[in-house]
Design a protein around this nucleic acid. Structure first.
Lengths: 229, 229
DNA sequence: GACAGATGTTTACGCCGTTAACATGGAGAG
DNA sequence: CTCTCCATGTTAACGGCGTAAACATCTGTC
C-alpha cells in the first residue's frame, strides 16, 4: 500500500518513473500523517506508533523527526484530523434536515447529536483519538498556549454548528432565551456521554437496536430538558 | 516508600521484624495492586506499568507474573478498584441528602451526579482507569463472557444507587412512570459526558467556578428532561 | 560548479512486556 | 525429623518502542 502511494507520488512529482530508490521521499509529512491516521482508525490513539507510521511510509523511524517533534506531535496531528472528521459527520447529518419550522429545527438538533454518536460508532478509533489526552508530561508555557488555542478552535469548529442550531431553537420560540446560555455544554455532554459509554463503558455490549434506542432516548431527554417549561 | 510498606508488612504478617532479605514476599499480589493503583492515580491507565509496579513492590519484574497473567490483568484489577471508588464517592454524596419529599429526592439525584463528576475531578487518573478500554487484542470466548459479567456487575454496583433514586422519583410523583425505563442511561450519559469533557475535552481549561456552573446546569437540564411534562 | 541546509540513514540507549530457565524456601508426607 | 514438591521468587534474553547523535545524500542557490 505504501509502496503504491510512493510510486504514485514519485511519478506525479518528478516524472522520473520507477525512481523507487529515491533518497528523498517528497511528501513524507503527509505520508506519515496518513499512516498514523490509519493506525488510529483501527486501534485508537494508543496504536499511533511513530515507528509503525515510518515503516508504513517506507522510511526509517528517525526520518519522522524531520517532520514531527516526536510521537506526541504526530498524535496531535491525528487528533486534529479526527476532530475535523467528527465535525464533518455532524454537518452531513444536520444538512439532511430541511425546513425552518419548529419541528425541523428540533429535528436538526437531534440530527447533529445523532451524527456525533454515529461517528463514534463508525470510527471508534478516530473518535477516541479526537478526545485522547494530550501529552501527559509537564507542558511548557508555549504548549499551554497552544492547547488553549486548540480548545478555542474546538469550540469554533465543532460548536458553531450546534450554536447556530440552538440559536434558531430560541428564534423559533421553542427554547426560552434565558435558558440559552450554556445550553451547548449540556447538549454536548449528553451526546459525548452516550458515545463514550457505548464505546468503552457499560453500554459496550448492547445490540445495535438497543443502542439506537438509547441514543434517541438521550436526544429526547436533553432536548426536553433544554426546552422545558 | 516501597521499602516502607514492605517492612510494615513483614512486621505485621510474620512478626519477623527486619526480615528484609525475605525471598518470599508474603503479600505480593496486594502490594503490586496497590502500587499499580498509585500509578494510575497520577498518570491514568497508561501509567500502569507492570515493571514499575514490581519495582515499587521491591520485586523483580517477572515476579508479577506469578500473580497476574500480564499487564492487562493488572490494569483490569486497577479498573475494578477504580469503579468501586467511584461508586463509593456517589454513595457518599447521595447519603448527605436527607428526607423523602419531592425536593429531597430530586436533590438526591443531583447529589449522585455531582458525586460522579466530583470523583472524576478529584481522582482523574482513577476515573480514566475506570473507563479505559479493555485489552484491545482478540478476546477469547471465556474472556468475552467475563467482560459481559463485568458489565453486569457494573450495572448492579454503580447503577443500583441511581436506579433506586430514579424509582423514588417516580414514586413521589415527580417523574412519569412511562418515562422511567431507560432513564438511568440518559442520566448516566449526561454526567459521564460532563466528566470526560472536563477531564480530556474542550472544557479542560475552565476555571473551577465555571466548571461548577456547567455541572449544575447539566444536572438541571437532564432532570428537567427526565421529568418533563 | 561548489556549498549549505534540508531530509533521510544507521547506530545506540533505556524503557517496556513477556518468555524461558534457574533458585529458593515452606509445607506436607514418610 | 527429613525429604521432596511446588508455589514463588530470580536472572537472562528477545523484540518493540521513543528518542538522540553522528553520518549520508540530495537540492536549490550564488
Amino acid at each position: 500500500m505504501e509502496a503504491n502511494s510512493r510510486a504514485t507520488r514519485d511519478a506525479s512529482a518528478t516524472g522520473q518513473a520507477g525512481a523507487r530508490g529515491r533518497y528523498h521521499h517528497g511528501d513524507l509529512r503527509n505520508a506519515l500523517l496518513r499512516a498514523a491516521i490509519d493506525l488510529a482508525r483501527d486501534g485508537g490513539p494508543d496504536a499511533v506508533v511513530l515507528r509503525a507510521a515510518a515503516r508504513a511510509a517506507g522510511v526509517s523511524a528517525t526520518a519522522a523527526y524531520r517532520h514531527f517533534a516526536g510521537q506526541a506531535e504526530l498524535l496531535h496531528a491525528v487528533k486534529e484530523y479526527a476532530q475535523e472528521r467528527l465535525v464533518d459527520r455532524m454537518e452531513e447529518s444536520g444538512r439532511e434536515v430541511e425546513g425552518e419550522g419548529v419541528e425541523a429545527v428540533v429535528e436538526r438538533v437531534r440530527a447533529l447529536g445523532r451524527g456525533y454518536v454515529m461517528f463514534a460508532m463508525e470510527e471508534p478509533g478516530l473518535f477516541r483519538a479526537a478526545f485522547c489526552r494530550e501529552t501527559i508530561g509537564s507542558v511548557s508555557l508555549d504548549q499551554e498556549g497552544a492547547a488553549r488555542a486548540l480548545s478555542r478552535r474546538w469550540e469554533s469548529r465543532s460548536f458553531d454548528l450546534l450554536i447556530e442550531t440552538l440559536d434558531s431553537l430560541v428564534a423559533c420560540g421553542k427554547m426560552a432565551p434565558e435558558r440559552r446560555p450554556g445550553a451547548e455544554l449540556s447538549a454536548w455532554a449528553m451526546v459525548h456521554g452516550v458515545a463514550t459509554l457505548i464505546l468503552d463503558g457499560p453500554l459496550a455490549d448492547l445490540g445495535p437496536e438497543q443502542v439506537r434506542h438509547v441514543i434517541e432516548r438521550a436526544l429526547t431527554d436533553v432536548i426536553e430538558g433544554l426546552t422545558a417549561r
